[in-house]
């Protein structure tokens, strides 16, 4: 190994460790949810508990917001995977009903990453 090799190895180990540390920060609680369906595209706050009905490709999906969390309660799809996925509360999480084409994307006030550079 030459001196350049050792230096490279050191820099690579440090860079990967720092990157891993920054990427794997604990996730941030979401405060908003982006709801996307073929007919609607809106952002709803998670602060207020409520039940929403969103029109999808097959029919109405029932979505419940409670205690800063969100989940599908009912859906016209046959598999009900969206309902089985349960609650989502962290920024960046997704709940999707593919057959009904309704998706929920949780947003935090802060992005889970401060910056991403190479």
């Amino acid at each position: 190994m030459t001196r350049a090799d050792r230096l490279l190895l050191l820099v690579a180990i440090i860079a990967i460790s720092v990157f891993a540390f920054r990427t794997w920060q604990p996730s941030i609680n979401a405060d908003r949810v982006e709801i996307i369906s073929p007919f609607e595209h809106k952002t709803v706050s998670l602060r207020q508990d409520k039940t929403l009905f969103v029109a999808g490709a097959l029919g109405r999906s029932e979505i419940r917001i409670a205690q800063h969390r969100i989940r599908f309660i009912d859906s016209p799809c046959t598999t009900k995977f969206c309902v089985l996925q349960g609650w989502a509360s962290h920024s960046g999480e997704l709940r999707v009903c593919l057959p009904n084409k309704v998706s929920l994307r949780l947003l935090g006030s802060k992005s889970p990453f401060d910056s991403l550079t190479f």
Binding site: M1, T2, R3, A4, D5, L8, L9, A12
Partner: peptide, 13 residues
Amino acid sequence: LPGKGFSAIGLSI
């Protein structure tokens, strides 16, 4: 890189 530069290990990394 001038001088001895990287060996096979450095290049491979």
